[in-house]
Amino acid sequence: MKQVIALLGIGLLVGCSGGKDRTLPILGRQEIQGSDTVYQQIADFRFMNQDSVWVTNQTFSNKAYVADFFFTSCPSICPIMKKQMLRVYKAFEGNPGISFLSHTIDPRHDSVPVLKKYAADLGVSSEQWHFVTGPRETVYALAENSYMVAALEDENAPGGFIHGGHFILVDENRHIRGIYDGTEEASVNQLIRDIPVLLKESEAAGNSKTSE
């Protein structure tokens, strides 16, 4: 029976990912309100980026973005994640439809100048890739409640923090459209394939808006 379910699962996956008109699902919690389904949205936020510029939900009001959580002195999974994220960044460098948002979970150490230096040493543009900091509690709550990523301080962990290595793809309506393992090359390849699908959808929505 388990095998049958597994086969069905694979069949569904293939069914979803195949075809030219592939769309990405809306993930996260959902509520039925009357005849409408209301999907979870990324909560309001306001953080400062490496150029001391405020980054809010409005920064991404007309574009998709990929979010993750890290800290600059992290010796465990962050270098792997950043190497993978850099691959995604390079695949879409200069594309105005997609941005990157990396939140530090160690705001005590990762000040604006530290983030600025980090971004420069990574060799990426501030326009497209924001490295942001904010009050610790706010960042942790957003990670957990909006992006569904665990983040906590633990003095026994290498570097002093434990956090999930996910990349979260968010659309212009603050909906989560994909969750990927930022430490797995195959999963990140999927993200690279999914971004154009989302961009196409957003383009189509934009066109229909203007034609209305």
Binding site: S76, P79, I80, K82, K83, D121, L122
Partner: peptide
């Protein structure tokens, strides 16, 4: 994790 499997490091 940081210095990579072939010791080549990561960017700057």
């Amino acid at each position: 994790n940081c210095h990579q499997i072939d010791g080549t490091g990561f960017e700057k």
